[in-house]
């Protein structure tokens, strides 16, 4: 298969991802603008980070004037899942994937791109991943730009309703596996209960550290009480 057809196949497979990103990042743009970031800053975050949960948590830290250490630990905790995805995809790269291609393509490992790439039969070429990453990132940045700039033009009733979009997507990620797997459900509930505790009782802890403590504690509990038996069970 030649380079350009791999590239366009990647772009085609990336279109649904880009459409989803467009609307979710529109919500992120609104949230970012509401917490005091400029249109350029919001778009720059999306262009350089390409991740929903990490960005949403990051703008909270910026708005609260948190420490750099808090930002680093928060991004590590929230985005550490990409390490596993990157690790898994690294076993699936064809021989055209030289070290420099790996350095570039690693920028675009998101939940959705990982899902589509790992569902492909056979090995992945750099051109295929670049096509998908390009269109997905374009949708993500465009949506952020539109949300941050047009967010203020929308009626209050519409822009406030769009504030829930990102969280709706998070629920769409956690609810289905929680329904099918009781161990995941227990971890999800433990994290939520801890999070409520930090929000209403232990309010001295900043929101970034609270997310880290809740998530790491719940995942460690899960790993100790419900160890994953073999790799076939991994999603």
């Amino acid at each position: 298969m030649n380079l350009s057809s791999d590239f366009s196949r990647g772009m085609t497979h990336g279109i649904p991802i880009a459409l989803g990103y467009l609307s979710v990042s529109f919500g992120f743009g609104i949230t970012a603008a509401a917490s005091g970031l400029s249109v350029f800053e919001a778009s720059a975050i999306s262009a350089t980070n390409l991740t929903s949960a990490g960005q949403a948590a990051g703008i909270d830290v910026i708005a609260a004037g948190g420490t750099i250490l808090e930002m680093i630990l928060l991004q590590l905790t929230i985005n550490i899942r990409y390490s596993l995805m990157a690790l898994s995809l690294s076993q699936k790269l064809d021989k055209r994937f030289t070290a420099s291609h790996r350095l570039v393509a690693s920028y675009g490992i998101t939940d959705e791109i990982f899902a589509v790439c790992s569902a492909q039969k056979g090995m992945l070429s750099p051109a295929y991943m670049y096509g998908m990453i390009l269109i997905a990132a374009a949708g993500w940045v465009m949506g952020t730009f539109l949300g941050a700039s047009a967010g203020q033009l929308l009626p209050e009733s519409v822009s406030s309703a769009l504030g829930i979009v990102l969280y709706g997507m998070f629920l769409a990620i956690i609810v289905p596996p929680s329904r099918k797997n009781r161990n995941i459900l227990c971890v999800v509930i433990a994290a939520a209960v801890l999070s409520l505790l930090f929000r209403y009782v232990l309010t001295a802890v900043s929101s970034g550290f609270a997310v880290i403590i809740c998530a790491v504690s719940a995942a460690v509990l899960g790993a100790l009480i419900f160890p994953v038996k073999d790799e076939a069970e991994q999603e």
Binding site: I78, I173, A219, A223
Partner: peptide
């Protein structure tokens, strides 16, 4: 242990980020 931790961490993160923040999102 690490594989199990890595499996659970995305759900734990998203749950902690969503509850109770979603109720203030609008």
């Amino acid at each position: 242990f690490i594989r199990s931790f890595l499996k659970y961490i995305p759900y734990a993160v998203l749950s902690a980020m969503t509850i109770p923040a979603i109720f203030y999102s609008t």
